[in-house]
Simulated scan of single mutants.
Amino acid sequence: MTVIELRINEIAQGFLTGEQGNLWFSNLNAAAKSETLRSLSRFVVQSHPTNDEVSRAIFESGLNPNFTPCVLISKLELKSALHKINLLPDIEMDKSWYLLISLFAISDSRRRSVSCVNGCKHWWHNLKSV
C-alpha cells in the first residue's frame, strides 16, 4: 500500500476530514496530483458507483455540474470518463479531486455496508488494522 492509497482511503472513510484531504491534495505538486488522481480513479472503478451516486457526488462536491469533470463523469461510461478526467490540464486537477474523492467516499461506503458487511479481503476496508 502506498502513502497515496492510504491517504485516499483515510479521507474516504472519514479518518481525515474532507478539509484535511483537500489541504493535503492542494499541497502536492502537479506530478503527485496526477498520480493521486490515477490511484483514486482505480479505487472509483473498484467501488462500482451507481448513476445516483455520481449525481450525489457532483452535488456533495460543491462543484458546478457544468464543470468539465462533472460533465465527463455524468455523460460517459465510467472508465472512459475517468481516463479523460486524468488527461485534463493541471488547472482541472483540484475540481477532479473534489469530484472523485466525493464519488469514492459515497460508493465505497455503500460497498462496505452492503457487499462487505460480513468482512472482505479489501485491504482498504480494514484501515483500523493498518
Rank of each mutant, 00 (worst) to 15 (best):
M1G: 05
T2A: 00
T2W: 00
V3G: 00
E5D: 13
E5L: 05
L6N: 11
N9K: 03
N9V: 06
E10Q: 13
E10R: 06
I11Q: 00
I11G: 01
A12S: 10
G14Q: 07
F15D: 05
F15S: 04
F15G: 03
L16S: 05
L16I: 09
T17R: 01
T17S: 15
G18E: 09
E19K: 10
E19F: 05
Q20C: 04
Q20M: 11
G21P: 01
N22R: 09
L23Q: 14
S26R: 09
S26E: 14
N27M: 13
N27Q: 14
L28S: 08
L28E: 13
N29D: 14
A30T: 14
A30W: 08
A30Y: 10
K33R: 14
K33G: 09
K33H: 11
K33Q: 15
K33M: 14
S34H: 13
L37R: 00
L37A: 04
S39F: 13
L40T: 02
S41G: 15
S41P: 07
R42P: 05
V44S: 00
V44C: 02
V44A: 02
V45P: 02
V45D: 01
Q46M: 12
Q46G: 12
S47Y: 03
S47N: 05
H48K: 08
T50G: 04
T50I: 04
D52Y: 05
D52R: 06
E53T: 05
E53K: 01
E53M: 03
V54S: 02
V54L: 04
R56T: 14
R56Y: 04
I58G: 01
S61N: 05
L63R: 02
F67H: 07
F67I: 10
T68W: 03
T68H: 06
P69F: 05
P69G: 08
V71W: 02
V71E: 07
L72P: 03
L72N: 02
L72F: 06
I73R: 02
S74E: 04
K75G: 08
K75W: 00
K75T: 14
E77L: 08
L78A: 10
L78R: 07
L78I: 15
K79Q: 15
S80T: 15
S80H: 12
S80L: 15
L82P: 04
L82Q: 04
L82F: 07
L82N: 00
H83R: 11
K84G: 01
I85D: 01
N86T: 10
N86V: 08
P89G: 12
D90M: 09
E92V: 06
M93D: 07
D94M: 08
W97V: 04
Y98A: 13
L99R: 01
L99N: 02
L99S: 03
L99P: 02
L100V: 06
I101S: 01
S102M: 03
F104L: 06
A105Q: 04
I106C: 02
I106V: 12
S107W: 03
S107Y: 00
S107P: 06
R110M: 09
R112I: 15
S113I: 09
S113A: 15
V114Y: 12
V114A: 12
S115H: 14
S115D: 15
C116Y: 15
V117A: 15
N118R: 10
N118S: 13
G119P: 05
C120I: 10
H122S: 06
H122P: 00
W123A: 12
W123K: 09
W124I: 07
W124D: 01
W124H: 11
H125I: 10
H125T: 13
N126T: 12
N126F: 10
K128R: 11
S129K: 11
S129F: 05
